[in-house]
Design a protein around this nucleic acid. Sequence first.
DNA 1: CAACAGTTTAGAATAATTATAATGTATTGT
DNA 2: ACAATACATTATAATTATTCTAAACTGTTG
Lengths: 142, 142
Amino acid sequence: MSKNAEFIDKLRSSGLRPTKQRLKICEVLFNRDKTFHFTINDLSKIISDKLGEKISLATVYNTVHAFKNKGYLKEISINSDKSYFDTNISNHHHFYDQDTNELIDCDNELIGNVNIKKNITGKKINSVEVLIKVASDNQNQN
Amino acid sequence: MSKNAEFIDKLRSSGLRPTKQRLKICEVLFNRDKTFHFTINDLSKIISDKLGEKISLATVYNTVHAFKNKGYLKEISINSDKSYFDTNISNHHHFYDQDTNELIDCDNELIGNVNIKKNITGKKINSVEVLIKVASDNQNQN
DNA sequence: CAACAGTTTAGAATAATTATAATGTATTGT
DNA sequence: ACAATACATTATAATTATTCTAAACTGTTG
Ligand SMILES: [Mn+2]
Ligand SMILES: [Mn+2]
Ligand SMILES: [Zn+2]
Ligand SMILES: [Zn+2]
């Protein structure tokens, strides 16, 4: 399947028609090898600065949220002021570089099974995620 | 040491003078047995509704942030729209109830040591936190 | 073509947080 | 105690991220 057909498929299955704005967003998000961790602002900047296109913020928000709801993107909360999205939708963990504010993937197999010796009655576990905050040695914490 | 003396100490060591507004905030935060997970809004509501006092939002923000910077409170990010604070300042983990939006402590000893088989060169680990999202069985994820 | 459903967009509205500046209160030196 | 100074509180404004709205636009269908 061509990249473009993939994008159209992703959009259709998210309940969205494949318009040129949405396809442009797909290119930025899904046409890459490695995980992409981004904020809406990052994404918007890439589209306007690097690609010279202009897509309204509302469309970016709508499209990203549709992908998130469908499961093509994950949302990650590290701190209150920014919301990150992640193109790696597998179960995985993160390093968070407090110096650069960057997220780095940490695949599941790089973390021994998390052994949870407690359970909440009547509730089932939906996800288990580990966040490892790192910084240069002479640095402040968060 | 009396509770009040403790509060005064906490305030002084956070670089704040013990005023009546700040002592009131201390009472709500630190005069309890169990962990208190709260948003600024929660705290503010407790002060105004339950205690019938009126402390300006700015003072609440300033005081909570001073305590956080001094390490008497921790900040926890679960989702983009709310920022939680935590009176439990030990290293520990959390369950997050997606039905009620409540945080539940999970002490370190209830989670087997997290075995991290990867390291970021030049960076040291500042914290390792596990977030376990739970919900009733017939529920949507996040 | 005409009607319709869905889309994009600019701009307005909301909500959390932070900044400002005036007023109030406590502390210190004399 | 008095004046000078330093620190606090407060209302309000500003900022920022996000969501909402309503008008203009586009593509599809009969
Ligand atoms: Mn913050
Ligand atoms: Mn959200
Ligand atoms: Zn990731
Ligand atoms: Zn806690």
